[in-house]
Design a protein around this nucleic acid. Structure first.
Lengths: 242, 242
DNA sequence: CTCTTTCGAGAGCACTGCTCTTGCTTTGGT
DNA sequence: ACCAAAGCAAGAGCAGTGCTCTCGAAAGAG
């Protein structure tokens, strides 16, 4: 059994090695074309042409165009999640207080989105196919959220966060959400956290999708302030008062 | 000149009448197919087929598929804007205080989105074509924002809204935004309002695009609370204290 | 009644996702 | 070392797409 696991993760032969390489090459080329012209115009034939193979050969690696897009979505979630985790870890290593760590992660989120607009659109824009959310995407999708949860949790463990009580209609739901993925947090904080997560994406989406054109000019300063207000909304204490 | 204006708005002859009717029929059928299968799968040929005409004839009415989509986008903005305006006017007529009017408009926004998911995705999701935002869309696009601005402005004129001061980096920008489309509001409120507008869309988008699947179950209660918190963030006083 | 504009129909081009069949190469068991 | 099995690339082909062009008929203007 142990040996089997080892052999599963190692490269068995030239054939499997080639398959891995070709799969990666397809995804790379697809990502390049995605960055150039967006998901709508991503065509399997063009990817195959660019790779010097015929389009039908590509179906040995991805059973359909949607499956290729799903693979790109998972990679995008992982890339964005890694960026958020790195920003959180760096801020933690620098000894920043929770609120500064929160805004650092928000800034990293936005920076990644600005650097990979089409990949961001792929994951946080409108779902391109018949909006199928395969189970493979839920784990990578939760990485960003988990970073934010971790920051708020450490702040709560440190000095205790308090927010106004929830309306009666939301108390059970907030308790359930807390038990499910934010154990230890006050239910009010969990509810605020989930909302802040969506609101963060709303801010970035509006900037990226042109909704802020002719409205917001100083994007950096505007986002920094909005992210700080988001931190306030989840109960993180303001900086300056230790 | 007066006669000319009259004749511009009236129907000149059978030919123009037919053109208007056919144009409307094309948009209706396109909207129907959009609601069924989404913008990605909307095909001119299918629309023409359903209307009993040949695809090339459709190009007499819309020069390209993207132009048809743009027309649908404008209509969607107008429909959503009308829904928001109606909700705001109804709450005003009922004598509701600003904070209740704010949440009423937010609820109307969400209700419209849930009722027209693909049209919502068209305007607030990722831009489908080469992300062209024609100038024709900016006026209808601002209707929702104007309703929210109006509510906050009336609240400010009533008793004066106050929010913590802005960071220095944002003061000039907030002043510019205020002068441009929110005359009379404190700059801090204008900045919070623009952020809240994007955050509102973020909340709705997350629900609609499946990001809340397996996370938020009680969507109605969750959104109601989040919208209320948004009202708090722009400085609207809480209910219960007149 | 003419002449011009407008419109629908059809053919056609270049492209797409996807399937199926045909051979070639690598692999794993005997 | 051999040989069947599996994996693979290539090509042809199907149904569909956006869009262009030409042609004949209908409607409006003079």
């Amino acid at each position: 059994m142990y040996v089997t696991l080892i052999r599963m993760s190692t490269v068995r032969g030239a054939r499997e090695r080639a398959r891995i390489e070709v799969t990666a090459a397809i995804k790379d080329e697809a990502r390049r074309r995605l960055a150039d012209e967006g998901a709508a115009k991503l065509s399997l034939r063009a990817v195959a042409r660019e790779l010097g193979m015929v389009s039908s050969a590509l179906y040995r690696y991805f059973p359909s165009r949607d499956e290729l897009l799903t693979a790109l979505i998972i990679d995008a979630y992982d890339s964005l999640g890694a960026a958020a985790e790195a920003a959180g870890a760096a801020a933690l290593a620098a000894g920043s207080p929770p609120r500064a760590r929160w805004t650092a992660v928000c800034e990293a989120f936005r920076a990644w989105a600005l650097a990979h607009p089409h990949e961001y659109a792929l994951i946080y824009g409108s779902p391109v196919p018949g909006y199928s959310a395969p189970q493979d995407t839920v784990v990578p999708a939760s990485r960003v959220a988990n970073v934010l949860i971790g920051i708020v949790r450490s702040a709560h463990e440190g000095r205790g966060l308090a927010l106004p009580p929830l309306p009666a209609t939301l108390r059970a739901e907030a308790g359930r959400m807390t038990a499910e993925f934010a154990e230890g947090l006050p239910p009010e904080v969990t509810a605020a956290l989930v909302a802040a997560w969506a609101q963060l994406a709303g801010l970035v989406s509006f900037e990226l999708f042109g909704q802020f054109n002719n409205v917001v000019e100083e994007r950096d300063a505007f986002f920094a302030h909005a992210a700080d207000q988001l931190a306030h909304a989840v109960g993180l204490p303001a900086l300056g008062r230790p």
